[in-house]
C-alpha cells in the first residue's frame, strides 16, 4: 500500500434523525502511526470509527482508508482492515478455538498458515490454556484479548479499536497495550478510541473530540503546549469541600479533581496561589501541599473543553 495516508478524513459528518453525532471532522493518520481519538461518552468516537470501518455511511464529507473510499469501495476497505467494536462480537456458545477458527474461515486463511497464526495469537494473549473454554465463560479482560486475536487473524493494514479497554482490569489493559505496541513494530496502523486519558499518552498523536467536533489534533507533547495557563496541584485533607469552595470563589479559573489532587488552571499562578491559601485557611481546611505541575492530557482536555464551551 503506497497511499500517503493510512487514513484521510475530510469534513466528515453524521446526523441521526436531526441530531448531529459527528460534525465536520478532518484529520489524517500516517501509515504505522498509533492514533488515539479521545473524548467523553457521547462525543462521537464510536460513530467516527464505524464510519471509518465502512459499516456506517456518513451523511457529509468523505473518508479514505489505505487510499480507498469508505463508501464507494466499502468491501475493499473491509479486506484491508480489522475492527474491534466496544463489545467485540464473540459467540458465547462457541469455544475460544471455534471463535478463532470461524473468523479464520471468514477471512479465508489457509490451513497451514492458520495453525501457526492461531498458536501465535493465543500465546500472545495468554489464552493458550483456554482453547476449549466457551467464550461466554471467559473474564472480561480475556474476552477483549480473544476479540483482538479474532480481529488479527488476518493481517490488517489498519486496525480500528473502539474503546478496547473499557471495563477491563488493569493487568489485562497493560497486556493489551503491550500487544498493540508489538503490532506497531509489524507496521500496522492503529486507530484507537478511548475515554481513558492516561491511555492517550501512549499514542503517537491524539485527536480530542467533544460533541462531534474535533477540538485539537496533535502529539501529546504539543497538546500540552496548547495550555497557555499553568497548573497548580493542591492536596488538602478534605478535597471535596475544598473543590466546592474554590469553584464558588475562584470564578475565573477552571478547577478539576483527580482522586485526592485538585488541579487549578490559572494564567496568574502567584496571586492565585496566595488567594487559595487564605481561602482554605478561612474555611479551616488544612493545605498539605501546593505546587506548580506540568499539565497532563487531562488538564489539556479540561482546558480545551472549557474554552470551547465558554
Amino acid at each position: 500500500m503506497t497511499a500517503p495516508h493510512a487514513i484521510r478524513v475530510e469534513n466528515l459528518g453524521k446526523q441521526f434523525a436531526g441530531v448531529t453525532a459527528v460534525d465536520d471532522v478532518s484529520f489524517s493518520v500516517a501509515p504505522g502511526e498509533l492514533f488515539g481519538l479521545i473524548g467523553p461518552d457521547g462525543a462521537g468516537k464510536t460513530t467516527t470509527v464505524r464510519m471509518l470501518a465502512s459499516i456506517m455511511d456518513p451523511t457529509a464529507g468523505d473518508a479514505w482508508v489505505t487510499g480507498r473510499h469508505t463508501v464507494r469501495e466499502a468491501e475493499k476497505v473491509k479486506e484491508d482492515i480489522s475492527y474491534m467494536s466496544q463489545r467485540f462480537g464473540l459467540y458465547p456458545d462457541l469455544t475460544v478455538q471455534e471463535n478463532i477458527d470461524f473468523y479464520a474461515d471468514i477471512y479465508g486463511i489457509g490451513k497451514k498458515e492458520r495453525r501457526e497464526r492461531i498458536d501465535r495469537l493465543l500465546a500472545f494473549s495468554n489464552l493458550t490454556p483456554f482453547r476449549q473454554r466457551l467464550a461466554g465463560k471467559l473474564s472480561g479482560g480475556m474476552k477483549q484479548k480473544l476479540g483482538l486475536a479474532c480481529a488479527l487473524i488476518h493481517t490488517p493494514a489498519v486496525l480500528f479499536l473502539d474503546e478496547p479497554t473499557n471495563g477491563v482490569d488493569p493487568v489485562s489493559r497493560r497486556d493489551f497495550w503491550r500487544i498493540l505496541h508489538q503490532l506497531l513494530e509489524e507496521g500496522v496502523t492503529i486507530f484507537v478510541t478511548t475515554a481513558y486519558l492516561d491511555e492517550a499518552d501512549r499514542c503517537h498523536r491524539v485527536g480530542l473530540i467533544d460533541k462531534g467536533r474535533l477540538l485539537a489534533c496533535d502529539t501529546p507533547a504539543n497538546l500540552r503546549k496548547l495550555m497557555k495557563s499553568n497548573i497548580l496541584e493542591i492536596i488538602t485533607t478534605d478535597s471535596r469541600k475544598a473543590v466546592a469552595l474554590l469553584r464558588e470563589k475562584l470564578t475565573g479559573e477552571s478547577i478539576s479533581l483527580f482522586g485526592a489532587r485538585i488541579h487549578v488552571t490559572t494564567a496568574t499562578p502567584e496571586p492565585t496561589a496566595s488567594r487559595i491559601s487564605s481561602l482554605l485557611r478561612e474555611e479551616g481546611i488544612s493545605l498539605q501541599s501546593m505546587r506548580e505541575v506540568e499539565p497532563n492530557l487531562e488538564d489539556v482536555f479540561v482546558s480545551v473543553l472549557s474554552e470551547e464551551r465558554r
Partner: peptide, 15 residues
C-alpha cells in the same frame, strides 16, 4: 447476532 454485537463484527468482515 445484533443483540450480542457479532452482527457489527460480521458486517466488517468480507463475508
Amino acid at each position: 447476532e445484533k443483540e450480542i454485537g457479532t452482527m457489527e463484527q460480521m458486517i466488517v468482515t468480507p463475508i
